[in-house]
Computed example of a mutant assay.
Amino acid sequence: MAEDDPFEGIPDDPTADLDAATQQLTVRVEKRRYDKPVTVVEGFDTNSVDVDAVASRLKKKVAAGGTVNGDTIELQGDHSDRVPDLLREEGFEVT
């Protein structure tokens, strides 16, 4: 019979959630060429968060294309109603 692992459930990097919680993100919608809306998420600290991974998860959840431009995520379409809630689920603070 195996003993219970005292470290079970503890993440490999317990500071990862703290890094996300300390960042103030903003979500806005811009009109681009031909009046196409683009949802822009700004305010990531690229030293503590993998912005590419966050962008990939967001793109899958909203079923849209997008890109990472420095510390900014740009998603095709107007997702301003859904993206803030998705970011809060991941532990980010959205203003």
Results as ranks from 00 to 15, higher is better:
residue 1 M to E: 13
residue 1 M to L: 13
residue 2 A to P: 15
residue 2 A to M: 12
residue 5 D to F: 07
residue 6 P to A: 08
residue 7 F to D: 15
residue 7 F to L: 15
residue 8 E to W: 11
residue 8 E to P: 00
residue 10 I to E: 13
residue 10 I to C: 03
residue 10 I to S: 06
residue 11 P to L: 13
residue 13 D to R: 12
residue 14 P to Y: 06
residue 17 D to W: 09
residue 18 L to W: 12
residue 18 L to G: 15
residue 19 D to N: 14
residue 21 A to F: 10
residue 21 A to Q: 13
residue 21 A to W: 07
residue 21 A to I: 03
residue 22 T to Q: 11
residue 28 R to C: 02
residue 28 R to L: 04
residue 28 R to M: 02
residue 30 E to P: 00
residue 30 E to N: 12
residue 34 Y to T: 08
residue 40 V to K: 05
residue 41 V to C: 09
residue 42 E to D: 14
residue 43 G to Y: 03
residue 46 T to D: 09
residue 50 D to F: 05
residue 52 D to N: 14
residue 54 V to S: 05
residue 56 S to E: 15
residue 57 R to S: 14
residue 57 R to D: 14
residue 60 K to T: 09
residue 61 K to W: 05
residue 61 K to S: 13
residue 62 V to Y: 02
residue 63 A to W: 03
residue 65 G to V: 00
residue 67 T to A: 11
residue 70 G to D: 15
residue 70 G to A: 10
residue 70 G to Y: 04
residue 71 D to L: 01
residue 74 E to G: 01
residue 79 H to P: 05
residue 80 S to A: 15
residue 82 R to A: 13
residue 85 D to K: 05
residue 86 L to F: 07
residue 88 R to W: 01
residue 89 E to W: 03
residue 89 E to Q: 14
residue 90 E to Y: 04
residue 91 G to H: 04
